[in-house]
Design a protein around this nucleic acid. Sequence first.
DNA 1: TTATTATTGTGTTATTTTTACACGATTGCT
DNA 2: AGCAATCGTGTAAAAATAACACAATAATAA
Lengths: 249, 249
Amino acid sequence: MSNENAVLTTPRTKPGGLIKSAEKLVASYPRVPITVDCVIFGFDENELKVLLIRSDLEIFKGQWSLLGDFAADNEELDDAAYRVLCERTGMTDVYLEQVRTFSKPGRHPGGRVLTVAYCSLLNIEQHKLGKMDNELHWHTVKNIKEMAFDHKEIMDFSYNWLQKRIMEHPLGFNLLPEKFSLRELQNLYEAILDVKLDRRNFRKKFFSMDFLIDTGEYEDDVPHRPGRLYQFNFEKYEQNKRRWTGIDF
Amino acid sequence: MSNENAVLTTPRTKPGGLIKSAEKLVASYPRVPITVDCVIFGFDENELKVLLIRSDLEIFKGQWSLLGDFAADNEELDDAAYRVLCERTGMTDVYLEQVRTFSKPGRHPGGRVLTVAYCSLLNIEQHKLGKMDNELHWHTVKNIKEMAFDHKEIMDFSYNWLQKRIMEHPLGFNLLPEKFSLRELQNLYEAILDVKLDRRNFRKKFFSMDFLIDTGEYEDDVPHRPGRLYQFNFEKYEQNKRRWTGIDF
DNA sequence: TTATTATTGTGTTATTTTTACACGATTGCT
DNA sequence: AGCAATCGTGTAAAAATAACACAATAATAA
């Protein structure tokens, strides 16, 4: 199976010639509207939540959509996503990571629009919904049935991404208060991964990693014996994180 | 730390009003040129290679760049990447996956251009360079020092992505001929992961997964005792792939 | 104050997985 | 015939994971 018959269907330069003006080249490219969409996760009442806004398009009336905006002129997409996040949640210092670009033609009723999806994890307690934000609402991820645009697909992809990511990177702590009990941490993992975990083994696992700082403090708002509160030691993690995990598929 | 003072800086609709025309909305968005860039990996002489082309921009004279093209009107990006791949390699049925979008302002000398990076893995034997393709060349990944645009950054990111991905998904087989010896497979993993592996444990590992089909055939072009040839059982893999791998970071 | 309820905190054993390690068999080459 | 290179194989020690139960503590209700 060789490629004897292969043909370059778009030779882009005359043989030997070099393109002098990069500007002219770029000017000849088609242009596309770009948006960013943030999948903002929170954790409350032992459920994984996502922050959605009521769609402002007539065609999607009554449906919910991710928080997004178009990318401004010359704006890096990471910055655009962060901007959306700050504008909508009033929070800064929030975890944010690019997940994937979605480009299916027809994904936007107004014509071709590319969107770059970002995942964000924040502590839902710190995000008091503004009084004026009655268009914003935290939804339980597993209950969401339909959304505007292709946002359900983006959500599903992002949730999947989160499940994988949380097993190999300590993202989850961003969903909890700075100080948390091990029960809260376990609830978080169980909710995201949708599994039941053995409590003793879970504790053993996290203690043996040795990235938890014992604050010496205890929960004080629970109707039973309070648990110890811990913090995650991000600095230590950065210095000691695993390098090689075996082949396994 | 509440957000009492948070302000929505870009209220996008008049309160209560719904946008009737999605087209008009989209028409108001800034537009950006989009390209796709393919990081095409191959494996030869026990080294991981990448297919590069001499840059056709005067400003990058003598430098190498990834294979890319702009996204045509209304073209899905996956299709655009696949198109680039087919045009440049003359091959079809090639493994291709989106990796990341790069948007740093200034990444292209001709002005703002977004690019979506794709990784592709193919069997280098099947890609005989066309006679006219003296602008194309397979480079050893670890020897590459600089590239045109931000392509070195894209390469590094993609190589990193590959190292992680190959440990949890059977991509690697796309780099080998359909039938391969275990030595070849091990060389591949060693080259990509840049580690030395124990031969007996490596074999045990792969046999215990039970996704290799023994063809009953043997190598016939080696100057020593020939090894058995195997194929990867993709169907069986798809049915049996792992679900849960423990928390580990 | 006492009993009840809910959850915390803790250790051991069995099982599985991973690692480390060496030698006789086979083929091509000279 | 002998050399060089690699193939193919098994076992034992070490590490990681999984399964499993009970006493201690605090809040609440009687």
